[in-house]
């Protein structure tokens, strides 16, 4: 599983990465977590408001920090 966090580096983007890594660690799920800061790449996903979360190429969430429940739902699929 590849999890991409889209964001140009604001505090919400960093928080998104933290909470995702925390859930992965707690649940013992292996995933590659990458932060995408390049505006062009972010826009290629059609995302205009950050932070956004992309899992295996699919945009899951745009414009807010995910809560742990949401993350668990995505990674269990």
């Amino acid at each position: 599983m590849k999890i991409e966090i889209l964001g140009t580096g604001c505090s919400k983007c960093n928080k998104t990465k933290e909470v995702i890594e925390k859930v992965l660690k707690n649940d013992g799920v292996e995933a590659e977590v990458v932060k995408i800061e390049d505006v062009e790449k972010i826009l290629n996903y059609g995302v205009m408001i950050t932070p956004a979360v992309v899992i295996d190429g699919e945009v899951k969430l745009v414009g807010k920090v995910p809560d742990e429940k949401e993350i668990r739902k995505w990674i269990s699929q």
Binding site: T8, C10, V47, M48, I49, T50
Partner: peptide, 17 residues
């Protein structure tokens, strides 16, 4: 539509495009 200032660039490009 709320957004923090770090989204102004992607929004701007998205709109112009």
């Amino acid at each position: 539509t709320p957004f923090c200032s770090c989204s102004s660039v992607p929004l701007f490009i998205g709109f112009v495009e």
